[in-house]
Design a protein around this nucleic acid. Structure first.
Length: 348
DNA sequence: TACGCGTGGAT
DNA sequence: TATCCAAGCGT
């Protein structure tokens, strides 16, 4: 009979193998009493939602350099924060980040609540993030369940029920292992294990501290777990982006509505995105279409975006959008699909 | 509950 | 090239 996985075995592994990250307090420092900054824990956890560590690092550094505290962030302009988030994706996170910062400033005196239940009431903080902040920042014995933890539990217990159906049982398994000692390090250790050893493909079971306690290892099923419900295939949508440049160099841009795709972000005025979009130029001009289209894939559809360009005189007013003076326009402030359209126009 | 919501890297 | 995938949340 296999023994249950021992949290201490994983903590020992973590003490030797914890990866350094800008938002992380190393286990040795934590043992010396160094506490993580809840603001940095929160910011990193929101950025890491469905996003890789590699993608997050530079954004985290930029945000913490520019807004060192949650109150600094709360006082920032919406447009500045959205621009700083541009390229990271899932832009509702940035809108909720700002909302949350302002709630903390206005209702919590700029101090993070420590308990899971209160954290859950804040914008952009769901079950995972509430547990992560509570455990990592405040060393509360909360169980964090992200994609890594689900995968590790499915393998440890050789659970073949497909996700997302299996989520409740995997959560119970994870809770049953959560220790009272060093819950913050433990939470990060399970996620590190999933990210580096117990990986989706080709898990490195030979290096795993829990190998001898793992049912999937015993049964040879690790690589095929967790099972997942089949995905739908993505349809292709078409659209037209209009890049108007005034003779003084200003660009015609539009702030997208707060809700929906790319909500709150800056973008080029465009047609609707559909099977067969209608021409909808935002200003009267002689439009010239580029030979190449911008291609981009979102979460649930592919987009093929035709790009039309025009040079317009000073005295002509647009039907939609606003001209942004050239010195105020940074392509990096655009979401990626809009930047692709811009890059094509620059190359033309 | 299931779906809408980005992006870039690995395979 | 196509598909999968990454420290989820809101509705």
């Amino acid at each position: 009979m296999r023994d249950r996985p021992a949290p201490q075995d994983l903590l020992d592994w973590y003490d030797r193998h914890a990866r350094a990250m800008p938002w992380r307090v190393a286990p040795a420092d934590r043992a010396r009493g160094v506490a993580p900054d809840p603001y940095r824990v929160w910011l990193s956890e929101v950025m890491l939602q469905q996003t890789t560590v590699a993608a997050v690092k530079s954004y985290f550094e930029a945000f913490t350099d520019r807004w060192p505290t949650v109150t600094d962030l709360a006082d920032a302009e919406d447009a500045e924060v959205m621009a700083a988030w541009a390229g990271l994706g899932y832009y509702a996170r940035a809108r909720n980040l700002l909302k949350c910062a302002r709630v903390l400033r206005d209702d919590f005196g700029g101090v993070f609540p420590t308990d899971h239940a209160t954290l859950l009431t804040l914008p952009g903080i769901g079950r995972y993030t509430a547990a992560a902040i509570s455990a990592i920042a405040f060393d509360a014995p909360e169980t964090v369940v992200d994609g890594n933890v689900e995968r590790v539990m499915a393998r440890l217990f050789d659970e073949h029920t497909p996700l997302p159906q299996a989520k409740p049982v995997l959560t119970e398994m994870a809770a049953s292992l959560t220790p009272r000692a060093r819950p913050g390090d433990y939470a990060q250790a399970v996620m590190d294990l999933g990210a580096t050893i117990c990986t989706p493909r080709k898990p490195a079971c030979g290096l795993c501290p829990w190998r001898t306690n793992c049912a999937a290892w015993a049964n040879g099923t690790a690589a095929e777990l967790p099972k997942k419900a089949p995905k739908k295939r993505k349809p292709t949508q078409f659209g037209i982006a209009y890049l108007a440049r005034r003779v003084d160099g200003a660009w015609l841009l539009e702030r997208r509505p707060d809700s929906g795709l790319l909500g709150g972000m800056l973008g080029w005025p465009g047609s609707d995105w559909a099977d067969d979009p209608q021409d909808a130029p935002p200003i009267r001009a002689e439009w010239k279409e580029l030979s190449e289209e911008a291609r981009h894939t979102f979460t649930h559809f592919h987009l093929r975006l035709r790009v039309k360009c025009a040079l317009v005189p000073m005295d002509r007013a647009p039907d939609r959008g606003d001209f942004i003076p050239a010195p105020d326009f940074r392509p990096a402030d655009l979401p990626t699909v809009m930047r692709k359209a811009f890059d094509l126009a620059q190359g033309a």
